[in-house]
Nucleic acid binder design. Sequence first.
DNA 1: CCGTATCCATTCCGATACTG
DNA 2: CAGTATCGGAATGGATACGG
Lengths: 152, 152
Amino acid sequence: MAVDDVAGRDLPWTDPSCPVARALDVIGDRWSLLIVRDAMDGARSFTDFQQRTGIARNILADRLRKLTAQRLIAQVEAPSGKRRVYALTETGKDLFPVIVTLRQWGERHAFEQGETHSVLVDDQGAVVPPIVPAAADGRPLTSDTTSVRRLV
Amino acid sequence: MAVDDVAGRDLPWTDPSCPVARALDVIGDRWSLLIVRDAMDGARSFTDFQQRTGIARNILADRLRKLTAQRLIAQVEAPSGKRRVYALTETGKDLFPVIVTLRQWGERHAFEQGETHSVLVDDQGAVVPPIVPAAADGRPLTSDTTSVRRLV
DNA sequence: CCGTATCCATTCCGATACTG
DNA sequence: CAGTATCGGAATGGATACGG
């Protein structure tokens, strides 16, 4: 992977044309992805998120505001009718592959030998196999066989 | 996706048995993933990283130290023989799928219509298709068709 | 139950100056 | 080139108290 070129614009980062930097600018803090994870997990109310993450209430309010502003989550009418709950938008749901790859990396490298952890299973109870980036023909790709091309 | 159970241990987060939280504990800050990205991109020297990321020197030194301590990168002898350069370990290289999914999400959701950005291409110049989590039989999975199971 | 408001501590970060 | 040392400001975080 090598970069051909880079444009210039004003973000906290260099290289604003890099989608990785842009993505991290949205969810690259300590809590956002955990909030998204819990939303995928069924968390819907303020208290749901607060209890699952253990985050301070003021910070949680701030993150929910920001994630809402960025349209990763939205407040929608609950089925019950009167309460408003948080739900992932399509943009938020599209983070699923990110959560999964992060989880799989964590499973493999962030636990000691023999230390127990949760695993992701599909609707038939089978463990979800590791995700590998692949070319259109299915050939597995690594950072050595890919590169970054700047579009004109 | 729903969590069956959770153990207790001492991290800044709740739910230390969640690999997502563990992974974020290692690379969930503002710079680490960008450093990994640049390493995949060919960055090898202190100055390489400093210039590509624009990060302050003291912070960069700190991050390189931490990433080295966590064994995502290592200092190795340069082919030239005398200088030591930073290189990704296998653990670090295994973050490739994370970088790719993050990139693909960013490409799709973190740019305005018509705004230009770089793309990831394989060794034949073809754009790398979006990664989708899938079951062993190839069936695509979403957060609605997966769940988190805690191992005993 | 859903937040907001405040206070305080800690961390993070950038800029700069300096050393081997 | 590869860091280290220091400083000050900003962001982040936890705890708690309060109001709709």
